[in-house]
Design a protein around this nucleic acid. Sequence first.
DNA 1: AATAAATTTGCAATATTGTTGCAAGTATTT
DNA 2: AAATACTTGCAACAATATTGCAAATTTATT
Lengths: 135, 135
Amino acid sequence: MIQDILKRNQLSVTEGRKKILELFLNSQGALAHADIEKKTGENFDRVTVYRTLQTFVEKGIIHLIPTTDNSILYALCKDNCEAGHHHDNHVHFVCNNCNNTICLEEVTVPQVKLPAGFEPRHAEMVVNGICGDCK
Amino acid sequence: MIQDILKRNQLSVTEGRKKILELFLNSQGALAHADIEKKTGENFDRVTVYRTLQTFVEKGIIHLIPTTDNSILYALCKDNCEAGHHHDNHVHFVCNNCNNTICLEEVTVPQVKLPAGFEPRHAEMVVNGICGDCK
DNA sequence: AATAAATTTGCAATATTGTTGCAAGTATTT
DNA sequence: AAATACTTGCAACAATATTGCAAATTTATT
């Protein structure tokens, strides 16, 4: 399963990539670089984590989630993402209590009408509040 | 004018704060920490910039804009923001050409229907594409 | 207007985060 | 099983962010 995802994306199957991909598959929400470093423990070099995440983003295995706190969040893309062409147009939810970030795959980012002259390409939406588990 | 804003927010009026606030008033869009450091030249210490921005955010003079590139953008809040309670619910536009970020004060972030259990508090929306000046 | 009190600044030190080149190691191909 | 291609870790470095504290500036008080 994990191997398949890597192979499908023309990536060689290495311990590091398997481990990090597994982390994403086993976690509900999004992960930051720091999370991944913590959870992989002493197993990998920091540099490897950076490079692996970068590779995964390029291949469309994971996508970026914008934040206001000087970090980048990464979350797994669903099956219909292809390299270079993400279909991650869903809303992200950040819980103010547990601090988890969750992809709301079912909720599509709505279109907005922009003032004259602006030509939109892509839109991101992040909602925060309290998630179901924390109520 | 600049002094008024500071006083209204119970901040002492210092050179640094005046200068940085002026920068925001004179710029259309959003500014990153690095922009501010560049534009204030040699006048202030990096630490002062950090602390000033933090203070402005706390007082509601400026607000944060989420990004996916590990930086934080700051933009001026319009008059109806109060400390601790922002009314900055407008869409932000990032131009892929000139890289400017603009507050679309007229465009309100639309409400979305969340899955059961999720309780929204605040929503951010960032649209990117090409701005009027770049077309 | 001068002084006292409160706040802010800059410096220095430190911590954290991100990047690059290159040799050694591992995975894939033949 | 060997050759090739790719990935990793190390080391060095660069950039970014944080903290304590003394000096300087601003505000409040008399």
